[in-house]
Design a binder for these strands. Structure first.
Lengths: 240, 240
DNA sequence: CAAAAACGAGAGCAGTGCTCTTGCTTTCGC
DNA sequence: GCGAAAGCAAGAGCACTGCTCTCGTTTTTG
């Protein structure tokens, strides 16, 4: 795709990457609030004003880091889901719940390993507010991974649809999203899936942001248990 | 309790309150990131250095705002829970689910009305990390309000305990917390309660931080539906 | 090969949190 | 009641931030 069009362009992409790397380092070390353009430039041995040739503002740099972070969690989730699917061949084949749990655990592992990056994407929005359009697609990857599990379970007939009815507007939103994603799932399941998706990050945020301090000590077990309950809520049957 | 010990002390508390008020105004208008000590001082017509006599640092001011915010949500939750309890006398008495939903709705209403304050307490931790001891008690108020509903339902025999077993460490944590709070609830219920508490704020954070943009449009209905499901998860029976 | 575009560095602006010193006022101990 | 002590407000100043503008230099391009 990207042919070498000249030394200048290559240098540009290299420097852009170096800036992002150094910024990511500072982000991981001190958090988004203390990320300073001047410090990045200083560390890279360039004038701070030169940095503005690559990122027109601090928020643009942060946006780039946000996109990368979304892709990192998304990739972790997808990888965990894929290996769980491929591993569970043979006698215990088709265990959607194991796959669901694997994805959630992967997201949690990533979050615990990169707390500041997690806070950047799932904490309070730092910049002027509304995320740029470019972030929405990477932001959806974890959700899509979870949807994939339920879609496969549904196709395999291993999904127990929830009995009780949902409000019409909710089902409407859910069906609209399902159609947009080209996935065939009942509205009720889709709606509960969205809820589970949000609630998953509620658990993670409370754990990471210290709300569980002095309340929950067995964090891993608690998380796994809660994730199982979320799965049950969307209709994934618990294996015995 | 606080007798008027002199003009000086009264002036001090008045100025402290004025600083907090102005800071809260700026917080509500622009968010925590743009809250500036100098701007507060400027607005109050005093030198910025004078402000440090009242709050030794910006983080201390923020901490005071955090405590106030926790108390504000907590109070909203408690008030909603109390009126729901007292209103539901007579034939339809003892409707724990209505009370539960009322509390959750009150929290959501408060959050929607004060998004920046919500972000301050339930978003990424802004300062150097660990919240001071003084915040933990106000932070627990919403959780305690929810616990109260379930406690009353349990005492009235209107609680359907979840059947399936939970991991020992999780139950242990839950029972320890129940004992600490002096509340008599089964470990399994208590554990699910903690999960529901965290998941409630997951739903709110996703809504407030824009994660539902283009995904969920019928926000209120979706929230109410999810809250009902959370209640069912902890054993509150849904009335017909 | 010359014009145009991209680039790096430096100075500078307006703003920040925070400290220190300097006077003034209120409180407190004798 | 008065002098010492403590509390207070203000100003100057430090080190830092994001960001802009200008000015030479280098690279790309027509």
């Amino acid at each position: 795709m990207t042919a070498i069009r000249g030394a200048r362009e290559r240098a540009r992409s290299e420097i852009t990457a170096a800036i992002k790397d150094e910024a990511r380092r500072q982000l991981a070390a001190e958090g988004a609030a203390k990320l300073s353009l001047r410090a990045v430039a200083r560390e890279l041995g360039m004038a701070s004003s030169a940095l503005y040739r690559y990122f027109p503002s601090r928020d643009d740099l942060l946006t780039a880091l946000i996109v990368d972070a979304y892709n990192a969690v998304g990739e972790a989730a997808e990888a965990a889901g894929d290996t769980a699917r491929d591993t569970a061949r043979g006698p215990s084949a088709g265990r959607p719940l194991a796959r669901w749990s694997a994805i959630c655990a992967a997201v949690r592992d990533w979050a615990l390993a990169h707390p500041h990056e997690y806070a950047l994407i799932y904490g309070s929005p730092v910049p002027g507010y509304h995320a740029p359009r470019s972030t929405t697609e990477p932001a959806a990857r974890v959700g899509l991974a979870l949807i994939g599990v339920v879609r496969d379970a549904h196709a395999a007939g291993a999904l127990k649809e929830p009995a009780e009815p949902l409000p019409d507007p909710v089902v409407g939103d859910a069906l609209a999203l399902a159609a947009e994603l080209g996935v065939e799932l009942p509205g009720a399941v889709m709606a509960r899936l969205i809820g589970a998706w949000a609630q998953l990050f509620g658990l993670l945020s409370f754990e990471l942001f210290g709300q569980f301090n002095g309340v929950v000590e067995a964090r891993t077990e608690f998380f796994e248990q809660s994730v199982r309950q979320l799965a049950r809520g969307v209709g994934l049957t618990t294996p015995r």
